[in-house]
Amino acid sequence: MQTLLFAFAHPDDESFACGGTLARIHAEEKGRAILYCATRGEAGSPGSPPLCTKDELGDYRERELRRAATLLGIDEVFLRDFGDGQLSKIPLEQLTADLARLLDQVNPDAVITFPPHGISGHPDHRVIQAAVTKAVEASARAASIRLYRVVLPESANPVEGVHYTPVDEITHRVDVSPYRRVMMEALKAHQTQHASIAQVFPGVLKSQWEHLHRTEFFQSVHSWKSIPRGSLL
């Protein structure tokens, strides 16, 4: 059974970016899914009305993340505290070294992270993908680790501030249509982030899962011009 490591910056990134893929891995026993989250999301919103104080937000979002991870069937969560909104202020080598140690620990067959633009352009998203890429490339197993970026195709309905990837650069598509209810529940687990959820996934907070996307898209880092051997799942 293969091991897949998903590496992101914030609690909720996993549900926003590829919750359907994570749910499918669990439901179809496609492998062991491990999540690395670099921050506790303490710089985000506590909700409106607030569900906690700003001082409590990191702990609150950790609980939200672990609830979403349980719903999605994630096997293990490695949550770090590098500082929400602060990843660009710490030495990249520090974050890369932490990820390198995790690669040695979990020995993944594939690693999934953001593309260089971070989809939303968030600086933390861009830093985490840079650190992940450097850690994989420096690994003694670099040649055998499949590295992917989760992306949005240019064919998607454009949203201001969101970065898209040309369709011909997308190497892998994962059908997540059977798992849209689970995707919805995982998104709803991030209660403090209800404003963002309502904006990105209209209707989800009213349990309207039918409008969620049916496909999640990935790009092989090694070569997007030809689909590499092997598969994401």
Rank of each mutant, 00 (worst) to 15 (best):
M1E: 02
M1A: 10
L5G: 02
F6I: 04
A7W: 02
D13M: 04
G19T: 01
R24A: 11
I25R: 04
H26R: 09
K30G: 15
L35G: 11
Y36Q: 01
C37L: 13
C37P: 12
A38M: 07
S45Q: 11
G47E: 11
P49R: 10
K54R: 14
G58E: 06
E64D: 04
L65N: 13
R67C: 11
D75W: 11
E76A: 11
E76H: 15
L79H: 15
Q86Y: 12
I90V: 10
L95M: 12
D98C: 13
L103E: 05
D104H: 15
I112T: 06
I112N: 01
T113F: 06
F114H: 02
H117E: 13
G118F: 00
G121I: 02
A130D: 15
V136A: 02
V136W: 04
E137M: 08
A138V: 07
R141K: 15
A142R: 11
I145S: 01
L147I: 00
L147A: 00
Y148C: 00
Y148W: 14
R149M: 04
N157F: 00
V162K: 01
V162W: 00
H163L: 04
P166S: 03
T171H: 05
R173Y: 03
P178L: 02
Y179G: 12
Y179L: 09
R180M: 09
R181H: 13
V182K: 05
M183I: 13
M184G: 10
E185I: 12
L187G: 05
K188S: 04
K188W: 06
H190W: 03
S196F: 09
Q199K: 15
F201I: 06
V204P: 14
L205M: 08
K206E: 15
Q208G: 10
H211V: 10
F217L: 12
F217Y: 12
F218E: 02
F218M: 03
F218G: 07
V221P: 13
V221N: 03
S223D: 02
G230K: 05
